[in-house]
Design a protein around this nucleic acid. Structure first.
Lengths: 144, 144
DNA sequence: ATCTAAATGTTAGAATTCTAATCATTGTGC
DNA sequence: GCACAATGATTAGAATTCTAACATTTAGAT
C-alpha cells in the first residue's frame, strides 16, 4: 500500500515531460490565433458546452483567475459568449458562437493530426496500452 | 489504429487536471523556500545527478531558457553547483551541495506524504492500476 | 583546413499564470 | 429577518515561463 503510493510519487514526475513531448510543436493554424490554453479551453468548451468558469478552470488545469483571462480573450475573439445562468446569479455559463464551433472543430482536427504524427514511432501494442492507461487515469482523476 | 490515436487525443487533455488535483496544496516547508519548479528540479537532480541543463529542462518539462533561471535560483540558494563537463565545453553539469542533498531528501519525504494523503480516497485496486498505468506512460514517454 | 550547420547555455522582453484581495450572490444558523 | 460564512467570478500586481536572438563550441561536409 505505502509502497504503491511511493511508486506513484516517483512516477508522477514524468508526466510533465510526457506532456511536453506530446505537445511539442503543436502550432494550430486557424483564422484566429490562439495560444495553447485558449485552444485547450475552446476544445473543452466545445465538448462540454454551458459549464461555468470554475468548472472549466479546473478541467483545463488553470487557476480560476487565470481562466478569466482566457475566457476574456476567447470572448474578444468572438468565439464564446458569457451567458448568465438562471439558477445562480453569481455563475456564468460559456456558450460557443458559430465561429467558435467552427474553429473548435478545426483545432480538434489539427490536434488529432498532430498527435497521430507524434505517436508515429509507437507500435500498435504501445498504442493500446497507452490508451488503456490514459483511460485508467481519467477514471481515477474523477475520484480525486 | 487511427481510432486508438483519436482516443488518446481525447484522453490526453485530462492530464492537466489530474496533475492539478494531485499537486494541489503541496507547500513544502523547508529551511530554504522553493517554488514548485525548483522543488521538482531539485528532486530530479538528486535522483540523476551530474546531468546537463538541457537534459534537466526536458525532464522537468521547462523550456531551456526557463530552466536557466531555475538553476540560477538553486545555485544562489546554495543547493546546486554548475560544474564544467570535461568532454564538451559547451555543457555544464549540475551537482548537489551538501545542503542541496539534505533539502532534496526533505522535499522528497514531504512530497510522498502529501501524495499519500491525496490518494487517501482511492482503493487498493485503484492504486494498483494507477501505478501500472503510470509505469506504462513512463516507458512510452522514453520512446517519444 | 575551412565553411556551414547543429547543439549548448544564456539573455531580454513578452506572454502567461499565480496569488491574494475584492465584490456580489447564495446558503446557514440563530 | 439577520449576521456570517461560503461560493463564483473578477482584478491587480507579482512570479513564472516562453520565445527569439545571441555567443560559444562541436560536428560534418567539401
Amino acid at each position: 500500500m505505502a509502497e504503491k503510493k511511493e511508486n506513484i510519487a516517483r512516477l508522477i514526475v514524468v508526466l510533465p515531460m510526457f506532456m511536453g513531448a506530446l505537445m511539442k510543436g503543436s502550432n494550430f493554424e486557424t483564422a484566429v490565433q490562439l495560444n495553447s490554453s485558449e485552444a485547450r479551453s475552446l476544445i473543452y468548451i466545445y465538448k462540454h458546452e454551458g459549464g461555468t468558469m470554475s468548472e472549466y478552470s479546473k478541467r483545463v488545469g488553470l487557476a480560476r483567475g487565470s481562466f478569466t483571462a482566457v475566457a476574456d480573450s476567447l470572448e474578444e475573439k468572438g468565439l464564446v459568449a458569457r451567458v448568465s445562468a438562471s439558477d445562480d446569479r453569481r455563475k456564468c455559463a460559456l456558450m460557443l458562437t458559430g465561429s467558435g464551433k467552427k474553429i473548435a472543430r478545426e483545432i480538434d482536427l489539427q490536434f488529432k493530426r498532430h498527435l497521430a504524427a507524434r505517436l508515429e514511432s509507437l507500435s500498435g501494442e504501445d498504442l493500446s496500452s497507452l490508451e488503456k492507461s490514459l483511460k485508467v487515469i481519467a477514471a481515477i482523476s474523477e475520484k480525486l
